[in-house]
Design a protein around this nucleic acid. Structure first.
Ligand code: FES
Ligand code: FES
Lengths: 158, 158
DNA sequence: TTAATAAAAGACAAATTTATCTTTAATTAA
DNA sequence: TTAATTAAAGATAAATTTGTCTTTTATTAA
């Protein structure tokens, strides 16, 4: 009606790109292929230089591996793809507020000093945390490889 | 570890303030008391001028009512307190992306062209949407009035 | 009327997030 | 050793969100 505001999603743009990039890299690493930042940005439809910054965060956090020079690029080892959980990516980029913080902005979420939405909100956060904790990069990547899931909106001008 | 990023919550600051403000106003309206922007900001621990802006959005959207002049301030009618759902506040300020948008940033969330987290994410959004749709201002306000729930962190220097 | 009060509106400013560009460092292959 | 390649790092810049300040408008009461 008189909406003035944002298009806020659950995660930051940076985090969204980080998740999509990690999945894309994982789909290729299983085939033994390293992908460059250019390919990543193209495949997940994200701004290349910004995506590069996010890749740096992920590599520093040991979530993905990078190699410089000819034939270099990004990859994730088979073991890492199996062990890395979505929460590690979210945590590295957005921190833990989304699954730990108070829903309506109290400085901390506390059972002893709860806000009015605390009990209901806890359930939502809990489901989110469970999903983030259980989901592995492998699960996500396999769905993309099989063609069941996608990493970008399909573009009529392609 | 090498976290560089944000302290992103589920809702924007504006929306958090808007929800807390609405609840505070509702707790007073039941007693027939109008509250001024100064009281609101103080009681919910928010920046006054910014909160005033958010109140304007809420009044334009018919969620709360305002009266200028001596004895004026913000209020919500008894009927409105009963009928207004949390989702109306969120929708007016943050829009619907948080409960409709794709979790990892695809331009739209689609059953036919799902992202890798689509099915799990849908459950979380669904629970959030259910909560937002079911929760009334009255429910939230009554918990605050009874002293079970709080609108700001308790401050040791008070 | 006039004065006081309080929200609305508008202009501005700071902080944060998102995005871009340039230079540097590392790696590979010729 | 040189050239080519590719990520890392650093400096900026744009956009958005958050926060502040001033002026205007509406209302009430004297
Ligand atoms: S105190 Fe607000 S969600 Fe727990
Ligand atoms: S397409 Fe991503 S959540 Fe539905």
């Amino acid at each position: 009606m008189y909406g003035i505001k944002s298009l806020k999603g659950m995660f930051s743009k940076a985090c969204e790109y980080g998740i999509r990039a990690s999945i894309f890299i994982a789909t290729n690493s299983s085939k033994g292929i390293r992908v460059g930042i250019k390919d990543v940005a193209k495949e997940i439809d994200s701004p290349e230089p910004f995506t590069a910054k996010i890749m740096q965060i992920l590599t520093k956090n040991g979530i993905i591996h990078s190699a410089k020079g000819v034939g270099g690029g990004f990859e994730v080892s088979d073991e890492a793809v199996k062990s890395i959980k979505l929460i590690q990516i979210v945590d590295a980029i957005d921190g833990d507020k989304i699954y730990k913080g108070c829903g309506i902005g109290l400085k901390e979420c506390s059972e002893d000093h709860p806000c009015p939405v605390h009990h209901e909100f806890k359930k939502i956060r809990g489901l989110l945390l469970e999903m983030l904790t259980k989901t592995t990069l492998e699960q996500l990547a396999s769905g993309v490889k099989s063609g069941d899931f996608f990493l970008k909106t399909l573009n009529i001008n392609d």
